[in-house]
Design a protein around this nucleic acid. Structure first.
Lengths: 240, 240
DNA sequence: AAGTGGTCTAGACCACCTC
DNA sequence: AGGTGGTCTAGACCACTTA
């Protein structure tokens, strides 16, 4: 039930309770939840405490208040208040495709001024340069060039690059918290065309990504070229 | 100051006051705002009312609370919830460019099955079909084809289309709350090429957008073709 | 009229931080 | 010790919706 003398705040216990019911579909979209006064009475707590729990759920997009009527489970929970940063593998799996990776080259180079500025490291510092071909259900979908400071993440191997670098980094205890992507349309040059199996001049979606750690330090700088015929980029937005 | 007997809630008045000070740089990023108790004392209101104002600003990303220390103006305001649904005009202005619009055609047509399904209306229903050339600092940047149900928004004119349809719709009392964009790379066909002043086959960023009203009803369906050499799409993301 | 959420009060004790 | 935010109470009146 609800523990009043718990170190866990009462409002949070209520919040969890309701959130669970929604996620387990015990409360369905569009359905009304008990009124604030009912909750207060039932758990013998103040209505303001109930309001705090409900407020949080409203902010998270689980609930909607309607004055005079009641509080309802949101029909379309747009959890995409913010776009989630995902790895290629996560992206493919969410599309129902089996991700695959082919490492085309794995080198250690000295950062030129572009890479240095993007990664906020010294020019000439050692960085990994990894070229990978990304597959979806065994079909080439993207060609990517990846840069990361060796100083920040030592011990990266070709082996790791064949699977998920994201996962490796997170297992090292580094927390990726945010990222910025820039998308442009372009046409394939020789290198991308041959890797992706398309014609030179074919349309390609170019995505440049920088991911950041907790302390705002750049972790990786990636240039990706996606086959336009096989990849669509979807963004859900809200208007504030 | 603060009007207690105003129809505008006290918490909202306080909220506005603080928001303004931040936007006018009277309060700088990282700076501490007065404590909740100080506000309560100063305006002779309850601390809980002050908290409500501050809570809202925290949720909007203006402020950060630090227990035991105080409440501070956020350093990087839009690092968190970024992806906002914006009109073309808003987008251009945020890039420091002067938006412009040229209406190439303004018709009323019957919805075909694609348009009908995107707008969730009956096939054959009357819709506006508006082709516009979008300018940034007088230079063509995008060619767009716009569809909207006439039943939902009657009275749209060529005049309005030359300015902001978004604005018109919002002034009608319809609230746009969310949108979905799909981005693809493609190459220009004749129609887009001639409108945009580029060669057939030049890279183009194709963006398809559907915007939704409060009740999840689709408001508009827009196909846009952006000149790849003049437009980059930026997405900021967080990892949860 | 009865029920709902919206706003507001005037306190209280707690945990945390700084001096 | 004194200040800060975090949590919580037990009421109150308001505006709105539904019956």
């Amino acid at each position: 039930m609800i523990k009043k003398s718990s170190p866990v705040p009462i409002y949070f216990q209520i919040e969890q309770r309701i959130r669970e019911k929604i996620e387990k579909k015990e409360l369905n979209p569009g359905e009304m939840i008990p009124s604030e006064r009912e909750f207060a009475e039932k758990f013998q707590i103040s209505r303001m405490t109930v309001r705090q729990a409900i407020n949080n759920l409203v902010n998270e997009g689980y609930l909607q208040r309607v004055r005079g009527k009641g509080t309802f489970v949101t029909v379309k929970k747009f959890e995409k208040n913010t776009q989630r940063l995902t790895s290629f593998s996560e992206d493919m799996r969410s599309r129902g495709l089996e991700p695959g990776t082919e490492v085309l080259s794995f080198c250690s180079i000295e950062a030129d001024s572009l890479i240095a500025s993007q990664l906020m490291i010294d020019k000439g510092a050692e960085v990994y340069q990894i070229e990978r071909l990304r597959l979806a259900d065994q079909q080439p979908i993207a060609f990517e060039v990846f840069y990361m400071s060796q100083n920040l993440v030592p011990g990266l191997t070709r082996e790791v690059a064949e699977h998920s670098i994201f996962k490796y980094v997170e297992e090292m205890g580094l927390h990726i918290v945010s990222g910025v992507q820039e998308l442009e349309a372009t046409t394939a040059h020789k290198r991308e065309a041959s890797a992706l199996g398309i014609k030179v001049g074919a349309p390609v979606l170019y995505i440049q990504q920088i991911s950041y750690l907790e302390d705002q330090q750049p972790l990786e700088f990636v240039k990706s070229y996606y086959r336009a015929d096989r990849y669509k980029y979807k963004v859900e937005m809200i208007r504030t």
